[in-house]
C-alpha cells in the first residue's frame, strides 16, 4: 500500500450496489471517509442516503461491492465476506438511525446504557455515562423519563448519546436536523464539532445543505442512488448546480 497507517481510511466503499427485495436503490457507490474526517452526504428525498448508511452498518444486504472499515472488509462480494451488524458495531461503527429509533418504554438512561451493550464492564459503563451526560446536560436532566415522552430534539440527543456509548471510531448520523428547531440544530452542530475533536470520524446524512456543509469539510451528493458530485464543502457551496438544486439561489 502506498498509504502509510496514519492516513489509512476509516471507511471505504467501492462499487456498492444495494436495495430491498426487487428494488435496487444504490448503484455503484464509491465513497470514503478518512481517519478523523467529517463527511456529509446530501441529496433529496429518496436519493438513497438512508439506505447507504443502513447498508454500511449491515441492516440492508448489499447486492455487490465492497465496504471496508479501517482497511478490513466488513462486506465484500468477491471474497464472500459479510459480517453481521453486531460485529460491525464491535469493530467501531455506530449509527444514529433516521427517526431516532429509541426504545420508547425504557428510560433515557436505560436507552443510553444499551448503547454499551457490547461493553462488558459495569465500571466503565458508569464512566462512559458521565462522559455523554457532560456532552448532553439536557439529557442528564431527563435521565429517568421514558424516552418516548421526550421532545424531538431531546430524542435526537439521546440517540446520539446512545450511539456514542459503544465508543465508535466511525459515527454515522442519519438526518441530523430533520424536523428540529433551529436553536436545537445549533446545539447539535456544536456537539458534532465536539465529537469530531475527540478524533471520531463522522458520516452525516443531512437534507439541509447549509447545515451539512457547515459541519463537514467534504461532501457527497447522492441522486437516485448514484453519487453525482463530490468535493470540498466550500467548493460545493459555490457550485451553481448545487445552488439551484438545494439552496434555492
Amino acid at each position: 500500500m502506498e498509504n502509510d497507517t496514519k492516513d489509512k481510511k476509516m471507511l471505504k466503499i467501492e462499487k456498492l450496489s444495494a436495495g430491498y427485495a426487487d428494488t435496487q436503490v444504490l448503484w455503484d457507490i464509491n465513497l470514503s471517509v478518512e481517519n478523523g474526517e467529517t463527511v456529509a452526504l446530501i441529496g433529496s428525498n429518496g436519493a438513497g442516503k438512508s439506505t447507504l448508511l443502513e447498508t454500511v452498518i449491515g441492516l440492508v444486504k448489499p447486492i455487490s461491492g465492497l465496504i471496508e472499515l479501517e482497511n478490513k472488509p466488513v462486506y465484500s462480494d468477491s471474497a464472500s465476506i459479510s459480517i453481521p451488524t453486531r460485529e460491525r458495531v464491535k469493530n467501531g461503527m455506530s449509527l444514529v438511525p433516521q427517526g431516532r429509533h429509541l426504545f420508547p418504554n425504557m428510560t433515557v438512561e436505560e436507552n443510553i446504557s444499551l448503547g454499551a451493550f457490547l461493553q462488558n464492564n459495569r465500571k466503565t459503563l458508569k464512566k462512559e455515562l458521565e462522559k455523554v451526560y457532560e456532552l448532553f446536560p439536557r439529557v442528564y436532566e431527563r435521565k429517568n423519563h421514558p424516552a418516548g415522552k421526550l421532545s424531538g430534539g431531546e430524542q435526537q440527543m439521546v440517540a446520539i448519546a446512545r450511539a456514542l456509548m459503544s465508543k465508535p471510531k466511525l459515527l454515522m448520523i442519519d438526518e441530523l436536523s430533520l424536523g428540529l428547531a433551529p436553536v436545537i440544530v445549533d446545539i447539535l452542530i456544536e456537539i458534532i464539532y465536539d465529537i469530531s475533536k475527540t478524533g471520531t470520524s463522522l458520516l452525516v446524512v443531512e437534507q439541509d445543505v447549509q447545515v451539512a456543509l457547515s459541519v463537514a469539510k467534504r461532501a457527497y451528493v447522492l441522486e437516485t442512488g448514484k453519487v453525482v458530485m463530490q468535493g470540498k464543502s466550500k467548493d460545493l457551496l459555490d457550485d451553481p448546480q448545487i445552488q439551484s438544486a438545494y439552496l434555492g439561489i
Binding site: L59, T85, R86, H101, F103, F117, S166
Partner: peptide
C-alpha cells in the same frame, strides 16, 4: 420494542 435499534446496539 425496536428490532432494528436492538441490532444497532449489537444485540
Amino acid at each position: 420494542q425496536d428490532i432494528d435499534a436492538a441490532r444497532l446496539m449489537g444485540i
